[in-house]
Amino acid sequence: MGHDSRSAIRRDAAGIAAYAAAFGASFGAVSVASGLSVWQTMVLSLMMFSGASQFALVGVIGSGGAGLAAVPTALLLGVRNAFYGVPLTRILARRDLTGPRRLVTAQLVIDETTAMAVGRDERPEQRYAFWVTGLLLFVLWNSGTLVGAVAGSSIGDPATLGLDAMVPAAFLALLWPRLRTAEGRWVAAGGALVATALIPLVPAGVPVLAAAPIAVVAGLLPRRGREAAR
């Protein structure tokens, strides 16, 4: 892995971490406004470290849901991180996945680290992208959360700056190299279509999970190219 690709990965990771800090601040402010203490808010960002689940949890609590009622939604949104473990296990090194190191690796398995890793072509770059993105994001997401939780409602809405457009744009950009093949394009289109169709029908978190079977079906289908080669 060349010096150039490493610095390019660091630059991209810094871009993601920068807007994550803004969303972290937004989360901190929303969480405290929903009735959580600064400590509870920080425990969420440090221990749960999964933006969608965190926003969902404080959203349910803020709308008056009794404590435990908020848990299933957060967990449902967290299930996709378990799925991400499968491709990441192939990308990461054996030492990332054994002993105490595995406990740290697991905490960093989220949308952003998965997208950054699978967005690269070579194994060492993929692993480097996972770690740089994960560690940088962890630090900035938590710093942002603390600032937002303490500053409260004086934190502006990230949507004013268009930061909410950065999120899908970033995932699309990271997915882009995987769309070079017809198979990648079909799988992506299928996943997007299934998820969109299910938005009004199922609880939050399920639409993204429902995209997974598309990959299973496509992966198990016999390849025409391979058949022809026989």
Binding site: R80, F83, Y84, V86, P87, T89, R90, D111, T114, A115, V118, P168, F171, L172, L174, L175, R178, L179, E183, G184, V187, A188, A189, G190, G191, A192, L193, V194, A195, T196, I199, P207, V208, L209, A210, A211, A212, I214, A215, V216, A218, G219, L220
Partner: peptide, 16 residues
């Protein structure tokens, strides 16, 4: 399947 899994799920995430 593992190679295609993040493609399907991240595309689903973008759609959501």
């Amino acid at each position: 399947v593992a190679t295609l899994l993040p493609v399907a799920m991240l595309a689903g995430l973008v759609a959501v």
